[in-house]
Design a protein around this nucleic acid. Sequence first.
DNA 1: TCTGGGGTCCTAGGACCC
DNA 2: TCTGGGGTCCTAGGACCC
Length: 422
Amino acid sequence: MTSLFALVDCNNFYASCERLFNPDLIGKPIVVLSNNDGCVIARSNEAKALGIKMGAPLFEIKDLLARDGVHVFSSNYELYGDMSRRVVLTLSEYSPNVEVYSIDESFLDLGNFLHVDIQAHARAIWERVPIATGIPVAVGVAATKTLAKLANRLAKKSRKANGVLVLTDPVHVEAALKATEIGDVWGVGRQYARKLALYGVRTAYDLTRQTDSFVKRHMTIVGLRTVKELRGEPCIDLEMVPPSKQNICTSRSFGQPLIDLSDIEEALATHAVRCATKLRKQGSCASALTVFLETSRFAAPGQVYFSSRTVQLESPSASELVIMPQALGALRAIFRSGFRYKRTGIIVTGICPAGQVQQSLFEPDNRKRDSGLMDSLDTLRKRFGHSVVKYGVQGTAGKWEMQSGKLSPCYTTRLDDLIKAR
DNA sequence: TCTGGGGTCCTAGGACCC
DNA sequence: TCTGGGGTCCTAGGACCC
């Protein structure tokens, strides 16, 4: 029995989503910005051709964008998330086993497709997804997930492949490894690429030729797994059910620098509520939380401040009535006046299933009361949106809220947005 | 003025225990 | 206080991913 994986990756996903409901933009350069309109996180092919770099800060390229008539969007995760679900639904027609790896990538298990023409199957996916969803994709197929990633990259790059590459013939695999720079391998980042270059390791092929002990010494056992996968030995399984998260972090940069504690409290209270909501959604409780507060990393020396504080909870909880006050207490403890703050956030840790929580001996058991209330809040918010129920401390001023001045309508998830757009 | 947010895993080193 | 191997737990830091 041989393993076989397909990696299906949406082309320029966020840019493709923006274009979907705005056909005037076909053939035009588009970029999508990070939260707070900070930097570029997605580009259409036309924008790439103009030389706009991934991660470029908006303020540095603003003139260039205007000069070249690039269409600029704030990120609209509500739209992208919904489109992503539609793509995954389509993919599930092509394999019973699908792993949703990220918002724009899924792995498909094709391992037991013995009597299927894999090339034709992959091509069918490539044709079907844009018809069903409007989103173009590329498909890479190989014996391991790491090789499927590599095949997918080449499928996009190569004219001949035209969006689909099945990499199973050993001769082709070797050629593909030789054509792939080390830094483009899944699992090899900038640091490792730099280090490996010192040893003359420049391509994926070079890496497969190193001894296991060399790889383990320089890249830990994680790197060794990558190398084995490049050699065709599967080490990374398909994960159809995402494992429950061991940390949950909710944070945002402020739309403008904040000086007053009360403004920052509004932000953190909101993050704490969202964080507790995420915790409940995966059916977990947290036993500790960490609050952090920081200025811009780019502030002048002496004006940079970063602090965090961890609080152990009396007993594990997912109640915002527990988590929010504790978080605010931690924030007040680390706040120093005189700084221009840029970001705050909360991380919950020590996560356990909600069903396994041991009650503290000395605390009144508020869990029953809280969990009923939390259920009601979750239902309300799911139906009417996050701001339907808020706490006083969350405020209404919203001085912290992020800038997203170029937000597109949520065409697929909000009826009033769709009507307005028509 | 302006540079994202949310995760995972591994390792090393220290504290502490028998 | 030292002798000595071995184990666990925790944290900080560093690497990676999208």
